[in-house]
Design a protein around this nucleic acid. Sequence first.
DNA 1: ATAAACCTTACCCCAAGGTTAAGGTCAACT
DNA 2: AGTTGACCTTAACCTTGGGGTAAGGTTTAT
Lengths: 149, 149
Amino acid sequence: MNIGQAAKTTGLSAKSIRYYESQGLLQAQRQDNGYRHYDPASIKRLTLLARARRVGFSLDECAELLALLNDGQRQSKNVKRTVHDKIAQLDTQLENLTRMRNTLIELAERCNGDEQSQCAILNDLTEGERPMTFTLLDDSHNQLEQPNE
Amino acid sequence: MNIGQAAKTTGLSAKSIRYYESQGLLQAQRQDNGYRHYDPASIKRLTLLARARRVGFSLDECAELLALLNDGQRQSKNVKRTVHDKIAQLDTQLENLTRMRNTLIELAERCNGDEQSQCAILNDLTEGERPMTFTLLDDSHNQLEQPNE
DNA sequence: ATAAACCTTACCCCAAGGTTAAGGTCAACT
DNA sequence: AGTTGACCTTAACCTTGGGGTAAGGTTTAT
């Protein structure tokens, strides 16, 4: 199977697959013409990558999952712990985003939202000592993948 | 006020302040020795940047807020709409993260988590057709700022 | 023969800065 | 003076996870 078909099969882009290889997450066999070849075991690894990425695992964490997948001596408790660690990270992110959201709600509530220039939001964001709940930036950076595309 | 003091006052790093300037969000006056100088109005703008960033606004969105701050003809409803747009974005992120979290919970529940190599998580992540709820990657990329540091 | 559809590597681009590096300035100390 | 330390300057590379494009080789079908 060539890279295009592997991409179609897994839902990854060809570019992503090459990137994963460059980062050492996979080795790809080559055909005589230099094209990459993917056998069923490779497709399995790519599928793991695709699905793990979708639920929030970083490439480093995906490498860990791949190592467990390839390890005949693995213990499923180690896999489960990895998943629980990721859930804890998501919980932290969710808390931070919720705090940010609450702060914005509070700001908006105090603003008249009319034709006047006087604005409680801008006042709160520029004035005095801690006019708003202390909040944290989220660690988000990937583009949101919209379901309908 | 030099950049170091401005950083301390606003909670930004000096590097961030220079970066914001390089991105056209501020202009800084220069002293005879080439050092940047920040007057109270500049500190106000930096404060807006610091606080808006903390609640999730991108630099582009911060530029919008700064433009409103500097606009004597502004209408507070426009500020309020900007905040509501950001709240809606946070809601989308929260939904995606929650979906991801739910998927991970489901995966973990089906795994024995023992000393055996057999693992429902790895099976679900590598096998067959859509073995798990369809989820989305979050758009997160910034490092989480831990409250205690 | 040639066009379409693959594949290859290599390069630059994004956010939002962090992290050195290499050097200029300033205030205080000896 | 000289020197130390704390501050400032710009420049340039690093991060994540690829997207986009260039310039070219291969394969398949017409």
